[in-house]
Simulated assay, not measured.
Amino acid sequence: MSRALRAAIRAEISSIIPLDALEAEHLQATLAWIDSGAELWRREKPATPPEHLSTYFALVDGSSLLLVDHKNAGLWLPTGGHVDPGEHPRDAVARELLEELGVSGLPVPAASFLTRTEVAGHHLDVTLWYALSVSRTLPLRYDQTEFNEARWFDFDQLPYSDSDPHLARFIAKLAKMSA
């Protein structure tokens, strides 16, 4: 991996202003991980190395969010995926937008949220969350091999108990950023 790419990823993460003490802790641990020189990308499914980068890109229309019913996870999640070796997380968002929703050409803003989540007890996803403002009328073609359904939810109707454990905090951060 190039030093320039590691530095660019570090800069992206360093620019995130934490919502709360938990995000501050996650940011500090992630920066230490990057600075350690450890491998940042998953090389083999499901968990090699056991800590690696992933992304969520949340399509937001005002106070509504697109979630997908993820077949493998059994949860309603923002779209996203693992960052490929040698890939910047923003490039992963652009790639996954096309693969998962059939959308290309959307500008990808800087990450606005970061979480560290243990997955299935065997690996840690270091997830950069990207909020993309779009219209609900944007034509989408979701990947039916990966998702049962894609659905827009108003923020007050989000299925928090059947989603990523950090989704409520992400929505709180979106609200704070738009206030």
Rank of each mutant, 00 (worst) to 15 (best):
T30W: 00
E99R: 07
D162K: 14
R90E: 00
N72I: 11
K176C: 15
R116C: 00
H123Q: 08
D154T: 12
V103Y: 10
V93A: 05
A110H: 13
A4G: 10
V60S: 09
T48A: 14
A11P: 03
A110T: 02
L27Q: 00
L75P: 07
T79Y: 12
V126M: 10
S63G: 09
T117L: 04
D91Y: 06
V103Q: 02
A73H: 15
S135A: 08
N148Y: 14
F153A: 06
Y142R: 04
P18G: 12
Q28R: 14
V134E: 08
S163C: 10
H70K: 02
D84N: 14
A168Q: 14
R169C: 04
H82P: 11
R6E: 08
H88K: 06
Y160P: 01
V93I: 03
G62T: 09
A73R: 13
A172H: 02
V60K: 14
E99L: 12
E99K: 08
L101T: 00
G80R: 03
H88L: 07
R6I: 09
E99N: 12
L31T: 01
G102R: 04
K45G: 02
A92G: 02
T145W: 10
V134C: 04
P139N: 09
L40W: 00
L5V: 03
Y56F: 15
V83E: 01
E44L: 13
H88N: 12
A111G: 13
D162V: 15
M1W: 11
E51P: 01
I13L: 06
T117A: 11
A179D: 14
L53P: 02
E100W: 09
E51D: 08
G102N: 02
L40Y: 08
L97M: 08
F155E: 11
S163F: 02
L101I: 05
V103H: 08
R42S: 03
P159H: 02
L97C: 01
R42F: 05
L66W: 07
F57T: 06
L67K: 12
D125L: 00
P107K: 10
A110N: 07
D84G: 06
G121K: 06
A131N: 10
M177W: 04
E12I: 06
E51A: 13
P89R: 07
I16R: 00
A131Q: 12
D143M: 04
Q157M: 08
Q144F: 11
L132D: 01
P107D: 15
Y160R: 10
P49N: 07
H26W: 03
F147M: 07
E44T: 11
Q157L: 07
V108I: 15
E146G: 05
L128S: 05
L140P: 02
V93Q: 04
L124A: 01
S54H: 01
S14I: 05
G80H: 08
A150K: 02
L106C: 05
W152Q: 01
D69A: 13
A7R: 09
P18N: 10
S178I: 06
R169F: 01
M177P: 02
Q28M: 05
P50I: 07
W76T: 11
A4H: 04
A58W: 11
T127K: 04
E39N: 10
G81V: 09
L67S: 09
V103P: 01
E146S: 12
H26L: 00
A29T: 06
N148S: 12
S54R: 06
S104H: 11
S64M: 09
L67C: 03
D69S: 15
Q157P: 11
L124P: 00
A8C: 03
A29G: 09
L75W: 03
I34K: 09
H70N: 14
L40F: 08
